[in-house]
Simulated scan of single mutants.
Amino acid sequence: MPKPIRMSRRSWIAAWAVLCAAGLAATAGLNASSAPAPRPEKPVSAECAKRIADIETQLAKAKREDKGDGVLAFSRIQVGTEDDCRGDLRNHFRGDQ
């Protein structure tokens, strides 16, 4: 059985450093190329804009009063209507705008 090739400690460290640098460069390249394109802003209906403004007002009021654990519940949204604003509310408060 042939003897395995022996590598010095410096060779192992150099090979490890080269592989790490290549991995970092590949990661940086993939992160730069996969940046999402900005989405065009969708118009919000007047009813939804009014609801969003109302919720923003209630949130600001709750923040000023600083009561409880900061949990607010809203039950004004009517499910099943044509313009229930769920998507617009989700996009606005998730920060997609």
Rank of each mutant, 00 (worst) to 15 (best):
M1N: 11
M1G: 14
P2A: 06
K3Q: 12
P4W: 01
I5F: 05
M7S: 08
M7E: 10
S11H: 12
W12D: 08
I13A: 05
I13V: 14
A14P: 02
A17K: 14
V18F: 02
V18E: 12
V18H: 10
L19F: 11
L19N: 15
C20L: 15
C20P: 02
C20F: 12
A21K: 06
A21I: 09
A21V: 11
A21G: 09
A22Q: 09
A22T: 09
G23F: 10
G23V: 07
L24P: 07
A25F: 10
A26W: 12
T27G: 08
A28I: 07
A28N: 04
A32R: 07
S33C: 04
S33G: 04
S34D: 03
P36G: 06
P36V: 11
R39E: 15
R39H: 04
K42D: 04
V44E: 01
V44P: 00
S45I: 07
A46M: 03
A46V: 10
E47K: 07
A49K: 03
A49E: 12
K50H: 05
K50W: 03
I52A: 01
I52V: 03
I52D: 00
I52C: 02
A53N: 12
A53E: 15
D54A: 12
D54R: 06
I55H: 04
E56H: 06
E56Y: 00
K63A: 13
K63Q: 13
R64T: 12
R64E: 14
E65Q: 08
D66A: 15
K67F: 02
G68P: 03
G68E: 02
G68Q: 06
D69L: 13
G70V: 03
G70W: 01
V71S: 06
L72F: 00
A73F: 14
A73L: 13
S75C: 09
S75G: 14
I77Y: 05
V79C: 03
T81M: 05
T81D: 14
E82F: 09
D84V: 07
D84H: 09
D84Q: 06
D84P: 04
C85W: 01
R86I: 12
G87W: 01
G87D: 04
G87T: 00
G87V: 00
G87Q: 04
L89H: 06
L89R: 07
R90E: 02
R90L: 08
R90F: 09
R90V: 03
G95S: 04
D96Q: 08
